[in-house]
Simulated scan of single mutants.
Amino acid sequence: MTRISLTGFGSHLPGTPLTDDALPPLDAPLTEAQAQRIGVTRRHWAGEHDTVPGMAAAAAEQALHRAGTPAADLDLIVLANWTGRRYIPELAPRLATLLGADRAVAFDLCCACAGFLYGLAITDSLLRTGRYRRALVVASETTSRRAAPGSRASRVYADGAGAFVLQRDAGRGGTLLDHELATDGEQHGIMDVTEDGHVRTHLRQRELAGLAAESIARLTTTLLERNGLSADDVDWFVPHTGTAGIHTAVRRRLPFRPERILTNFSTVGNVSSAAVPVALDHFVSRGLVKPGQLVLSASVGTGWYAAATLYTV
């Protein structure tokens, strides 16, 4: 049976950590209780010269080094991004050139905050065809630029990139086991971007948190049942939760023990589709998530997208 291995992880956060005091003032100052509910104590913002392909390349080079895979050996590159998207030219081919992956097929993917997990699912399918052997999936986001200046979102949105290296029948590393994807066009209009390029939400935060938790719970349950697993069989649940309210709703809705849910949201902020690979890389690098352990990651994205992935590291 074909095995899709996860052979390397990497991440990149631009600049230095920024506390609230280092950010431009809000239109309406926060009370201490409100700041605690936002739940982010520091984050990284991309500078003038930090680009989506550049941050992606930094995360990818780290992942490739750890995988022991030269960029020139890559067959496939998938770049998830929505915050810096443009009509043309798209960004994945530029990333391939920055890495020196001259023979890789490279393409862009959106799917909002769920983009990275969608990228893993697509890459898994392409590797199993036998036409490709080594692949790189990267998410790179400048989410801070999608927050209106002076808004509370500017205290949550942040920037960063994360990457996984995948290989067919590598015989080493972790294993990509299964995935589940879903969309719901009935929820299409709950968020959009203004003409100024800033995210605008048309749903109360409590309702948005409930929708996100329900979507994640449904896909997670499906994934566990299909693989004959219970929540207790999973070593770590590493989700993208987006806001502190969504994180709380997910914890209440899912059966995972609180100590088995890992997130670095408070020190990284909402880095959108890069959230899962950035968190996973941080926890693996610190030795908290260990080789061979079973991980389940889930995410939602406006549109409406939902995704869940089961893998070992």
Rank of each mutant, 00 (worst) to 15 (best):
V271W: 03
C111N: 13
E90K: 07
H65L: 11
A92S: 07
Q293C: 05
P255H: 10
R155C: 11
R128F: 09
V199F: 15
S285I: 00
E214S: 09
P14G: 14
S140N: 09
L76R: 02
F107Y: 13
K290S: 09
G39R: 01
V250M: 12
L294G: 05
G189H: 13
D192H: 08
G210T: 08
L76T: 02
F9G: 02
E195G: 15
R260E: 06
G242Y: 03
G189F: 00
F164W: 12
H240F: 07
V138L: 05
S272Q: 09
K290W: 02
R252V: 08
L109S: 13
P25E: 09
H179M: 10
A244S: 15
A306L: 04
A92T: 05
N264F: 01
A114N: 08
G269Y: 12
G150Q: 09
L13T: 11
A135Y: 10
T194M: 07
P93D: 07
G119F: 04
P29D: 10
T123W: 05
M191S: 14
P89H: 12
A104W: 01
Q167W: 03
V238M: 03
D159Y: 02
D159S: 12
A106C: 11
A57E: 13
A306E: 04
S266M: 06
Q62L: 05
G47R: 14
W45M: 02
G10S: 08
S215M: 07
A101Y: 10
V313S: 04
T267S: 15
S154I: 00
S125T: 15
Y87Q: 12
T309V: 14
A71H: 09
S154W: 01
A274C: 10
L208H: 06
P53K: 00
S297Y: 01
V289H: 02
H44K: 03
H202Q: 14
K290R: 15
S285M: 03
D233V: 05
H44E: 09
Y311T: 03
V137M: 14
T302S: 14
A92C: 07
T263M: 00
T69E: 15
S230A: 14
E225R: 15
G130S: 10
T142M: 13
P24Y: 08
L229E: 00
A212C: 13
P89F: 12
A28F: 07
T123G: 01
R103L: 11
A139V: 01
G84Q: 11
R200S: 14
G197V: 13
L120M: 14
T16N: 10
D169Y: 12
L219M: 08
H44L: 05
L280S: 02
A121R: 07
V193W: 05
T221E: 15
T248V: 00
A307P: 08
I4S: 01
G174A: 14
G10R: 00
I77Q: 12
I261E: 12
G47A: 14
V193R: 07
G292P: 04
H240C: 06
R257F: 06
A212L: 06
H65S: 15
E207G: 02
L229M: 13
T312G: 04
V289F: 15
G301K: 01
N81C: 04
E225W: 01
A22W: 03
L229K: 01
H179I: 06
T69H: 10
W45P: 02
S297E: 02
G119C: 14
R66G: 10
A275R: 03
N227M: 09
L126Q: 14
G115D: 00
T123K: 03
T312Q: 06
D124G: 11
T123S: 06
D20F: 08
R168H: 12
A67G: 15
T51R: 11
R168I: 04
